[in-house]
Design a binder for these strands. Structure first.
Lengths: 192, 192
DNA sequence: TTGCAACTATACAGACCGGTATGTATTATT
DNA sequence: AATAATACATACCGGTCTGTATAGTTGCAA
């Protein structure tokens, strides 16, 4: 199952952090769930904080890969490519394991602005927006920066909405709004 | 300053819960900040959970009052009334004490779906959406439910965006998107 | 077979958590 | 002056937290 113990511990911790929250998950619980011992855990991760940051890094990579793969899979005309991002997130929200965005949640759990967890969350947020901005630019949007920020806010909003009330179809409603905003931005960008 | 001790304790706790997070704020810290003792705190709030729920209830009332007052203050034509909500939130985001939405953050801190904190957060979210839906209905929107969900998602999204990166002007960008969505919804609602 | 590294088992340190017990000072009411 | 309510002071409880120390076990390789 786990090629090496370090990965196995990280994977176990990651699942617990996401499903129960980071502060709510003790090291003992991780050790028990992973079927290992504290000594082994602390061998690979010198502190819980290191483990938390590794979890966020892993989540970051998984999320970005999933988005890029989904976009590539559904890629067609420019507008549909942007909407493909919403389809990817709609899949995520539909999973019974969905428990919100790991970065939004982590940002809420660790309040101090200087905390490394906050920085990791902010960095992911920026990267995601840049991806959207690139897609918007390729689609020929009038103001790719604004459009990407708006689409990213719709997605974040749909995530927290779905987190509070499941099966609300939030991401589809968000996609409908996105469609209108994209249309506007593309039509205004056409030269006369 | 504090007319009675109970209010004073709640106010102190509320500020700490919001600024540092709920789980990160211990009872001892609240007692110390309020200049009182544990015994007095536990007289009025039988458990920390009770204090947390009181904090959310207080935040709920404060937030709803602020929104309604802001809307009434800026009320003019229907569309501007909806956009007034965004102006209220832009004010909130501009405060140096801003640390995100108390309910989104609380929802992230307490993961279990059945937790009373989750229920309080969901209830606020619903109430807020109903207010937006009423305004959208009064404005003559084509589909007030969808529009209100979209506007609410833009606002939540702008809040988390601003939480991760301050001074990003997220709420103004959200308002621009809202303006487009409102326009569309109103124009489509006009009978031919 | 010996040796070594990875891993396990378990106990513990020290701090902090929410919550309680006991007793005292202050103030208002009667 | 007697009583009752309110708040304070302080010490303590059991439990949990992150992190460490010590010792035993396994498996593989020379």
């Amino acid at each position: 199952m786990a090629r090496n113990l370090q990965d196995h511990i990280l994977q176990t911790a990651s699942a617990l952090f996401y499903s129960q929250g980071i502060k709510a998950t003790g090291v003992d619980a991780i050790v028990k769930a992973a079927g290992t011992t504290k000594m082994s855990l602390y061998k690979y991760f010198p502190s819980k904080d290191d483990l938390v940051l590794a979890h966020l890094s892993k989540s970051r990579d998984a999320m970005l890969n999933r988005i890029l793969a989904g976009v590539e899979l559904r890629a067609s005309e420019p507008k549909q490519t942007l909407l493909a991002v919403f389809a990817v997130f709609d899949e995520l929200l539909s999973s019974p394991e969905f428990r919100g965005c790991p970065f939004i949640n982590a940002s809420a759990e660790f309040a101090e602005a200087s905390n490394p967890v906050q920085l990791a969350a902010a960095e992911f947020s920026d990267t995601f927006r840049e991806i959207l901005a690139d897609l918007a630019r390729q689609a020929g949007a009038q103001d790719p920066e604004s459009l990407s920020q708006q689409l990213s806010m719709l997605i974040s909003g749909a995530i927290v909405s779905e987190q509070m009330r499941r099966q609300s179809g939030a991401m589809l409603t968000a996609a409908a709004a996105a469609s209108i905003l994209i249309e506007q931005s593309l039509s205004r960008a056409e030269p006369a």
